[in-house]
């Protein structure tokens, strides 16, 4: 699920692949970089734990969550900590989203009218979470420049949404390392002023892959209000049974 938190985080997750088949050096075409990452992603499964910290000037809250993903269509998240919320879960299949709460022992499908509401109190909306990977096709991608940082090549890619894409931004600018770790993702309004930014602050090996270990999403104007993710553990290319992503498993966890 971690990679599915947002399209952004999804791209972050792309970093888990050592895209051996495509040497970054050859993938100078922006669309190709992203496309290649996508292709890899489609055949993968994962199981991870991570923490999510919601920070406000006068308040902070941290949750620990466990997630499973299979391909880019299915994911399941379950809260481990704090105890109060343990067992609350979210299941995503395609664009559909269900929520489960042990307090009421009910599974409820989130109606589209609630998709703009915040997910678990974070700076992400349900819609951000439920974003399908297909969204990648709804942009025109272009490579702005290639930089060098910490001994890595960094591609700066500009993604402009197509006319009818369900994206409100004027453009998005991504900084992706040659090992496909997403370093930065900035969202611009339609006057091309930056509005919010997702920034990776720690990159490292986990589960045999190079991944973003810590990343933070904040509005440009209110930097002391943010949501931060930390990867605690991750396994990749494991076998996740199909029955993981079912309503009955959301309700009665077997995995």
């Amino acid at each position: 699920m971690f990679p599915r938190i947002t399209r952004t985080t999804m791209l972050t997750a792309l970093t888990v692949f050592n895209l051996a088949s495509i040497a970054p050096a050859q993938a100078l075409d922006a669309a190709a970089i992203i496309k290649a990452a996508m292709d890899q992603w489609r055949g993968t499964s994962s199981h991870s734990t991570m923490s999510m910290t919601i920070h406000r000037p006068d308040w902070e809250r941290t949750m620990v969550m466990e997630g499973w993903t299979a391909g880019d269509k299915k994911s399941l998240v379950r809260v481990l900590e704090p105890k109060k919320d343990a067992g609350n879960g979210t299941l995503l299949i395609g664009d559909n989203m269900w929520t489960f709460s042990p307090k009421v022992n009910r599974v409820i499908k989130i109606p589209s009218s609630m998709m703009n509401q915040s997910w678990m109190g974070s700076d992400f909306s349900n819609k951000d979470i439920a974003r399908s990977a297909d969204i990648i096709d709804q942009y025109h991608h272009s490579l702005l420049e290639t930089q060098t940082a910490d001994g890595h090549k960094v591609y700066v890619i500009q993604s402009v949404p197509k006319e009818d894409a369900p994206v409100v931004w004027g453009k998005e600018v991504l900084r992706i390392r040659d090992d496909y770790v997403l370093l930065e993702h900035t969202f611009f309004d339609q006057d091309m002023k930056p509005v919010k930014r997702m920034k990776t602050s720690k990159v490292g090996m986990m589960g045999g892959r190079m991944v973003a270990l810590q990343e933070r999403m904040a509005k440009i104007e209110t930097k002391d209000e943010y949501t931060e993710f930390k990867m605690l553990s991750a396994k990749f290319d494991i076998s996740v049974p199909g029955s993981t992503f079912t309503l009955s498993n959301l309700r009665n966890p077997r995995f």
Binding site: N96, S112, M115, K127, P161, D164, A165, P166, V168
Partner: peptide
């Protein structure tokens, strides 16, 4: 906080009760 010429996103539910959304100018 938008104006003529800008894009907005409309989100609703389609016949199969799935999210239906797209951008509109």
């Amino acid at each position: 906080e938008t104006r003529v010429g800008k894009r907005i996103v409309v989100m609703s539910q389609n016949k199969n009760k799935e999210v239906a959304d797209r951008g509109f100018r």
